[in-house]
Design a protein around this nucleic acid. Sequence first.
DNA 1: CGCTTTGTGTGACCCGCATCACAGACGATC
DNA 2: GATCGTCTGTGATGCGGGTCACACAAAGCG
Lengths: 228, 228
Amino acid sequence: MAEQHHFARLLGANPFFAGLGADALQAVAGLCVTCSLAPEEMLFQKGDPGDALYAVRRGQIRIATGTEAGRRLTLNLLGSGDVFGEVALLDGCPRTADAVAVEPTELFMVRRRDFLDLLERQPAVAVRIIEFLCRRIRWMSERMEESVLLPLPARLSRRLLALADDYGAELHISQEELAIFVGATRESVNRQLQTWRRGGILALGRSRIHVLDPRALSAAGAPKEALQ
Amino acid sequence: MAEQHHFARLLGANPFFAGLGADALQAVAGLCVTCSLAPEEMLFQKGDPGDALYAVRRGQIRIATGTEAGRRLTLNLLGSGDVFGEVALLDGCPRTADAVAVEPTELFMVRRRDFLDLLERQPAVAVRIIEFLCRRIRWMSERMEESVLLPLPARLSRRLLALADDYGAELHISQEELAIFVGATRESVNRQLQTWRRGGILALGRSRIHVLDPRALSAAGAPKEALQ
DNA sequence: CGCTTTGTGTGACCCGCATCACAGACGATC
DNA sequence: GATCGTCTGTGATGCGGGTCACACAAAGCG
């Protein structure tokens, strides 16, 4: 019960369910199942039927894809409170990417049927969902522009700043992880991080990146365009 | 009046409004204003308030962005029957990209206020919108993966096949346009098209690309992965 | 405590694609 | 039909970043 109250609060804080009454939140909370994952454990993969919606309770989830040739790409990293898996849930089509736990992770899960029932009984939820989807579209279109138009230093700078914004200046992520997140190789990422470290912008450690000077990092991310 | 019936049919054929009753469609049609654009005329640009939803009646619209440094990127090309501008309309935030007419174009336009009123009176529309947004998210995530993971020939092949699918095997698009659509330069695109022309896969002309052998083109687009 | 595993730091080399620079070729416009 | 602007075709050259190949350091683990 305390469990469910905690849960309802967590959901209420999330834009996906914001605007529901306390009672409705309790109802949603009642539909949820928790589930936990070990590091590197896969929750679902590309092509699976989208039969559930998830929210991160604790830990971190990586949404990723790759080619058969082994090239990989992280589409997003999700932390506590983030909701994911909504697209496949809403349109009933297969998942477009894999979801893997980065660290020991606990999730809340709502099954498709239960969620659609709720949606029918609470039409106000639809509006929230629309807003949520719009936010996601904007985020994707931004990332898409970045990845096509900007060179590695700019992409890296922005991703680091975004991560620092979400998780604080002390990031614990390996350079390998970071590389497949910005669509580059570990070596290239390492070289760029080194020049920033030498400039006093970052401090580096094993699976640790400390953003010391966000302003300078931000400036370093837009030199080509700034100069003209 | 015949005008409005034509319009209502066009809207009904579009997933955005599919599922509305004939009367509802008439109501929407009544809200619409038509507007026409000359080639290269700008409908809206990045940062503008999103105060309307559009549907292409005739012609072609390019959705694009770019950096201050002059690098450009076409995000989408929309033809007759396509709906666009829905994100800014729905969440009330500024446009994330420019919309420009490629050729002489006529549009239908619904103003934000009118549309939100409709949405309130016809809650069933919300579900359609959700599906529409989901489709868009899937499309974007696919394009995003492509642009990061695939080399130019693969990206080009896929874009050509997609265009041929929408507009028929006879594409009339300049190589420059095509280049900024796949995130490359005209020169690189030209060289790739030439090798395909020499292979009998394409025929080329001034602002004209004829896809002669879609199968071969599709195969040419995935060599690296296919070989292994 | 060695031994392995996982992550970092760096050099050498190469390749895809951008950049730069022209030379036609086709369509419009008068 | 001469002229001009847009579009195509192609070479030369350069650079960002991918690939390969190690050396080393820090964390697990018997």
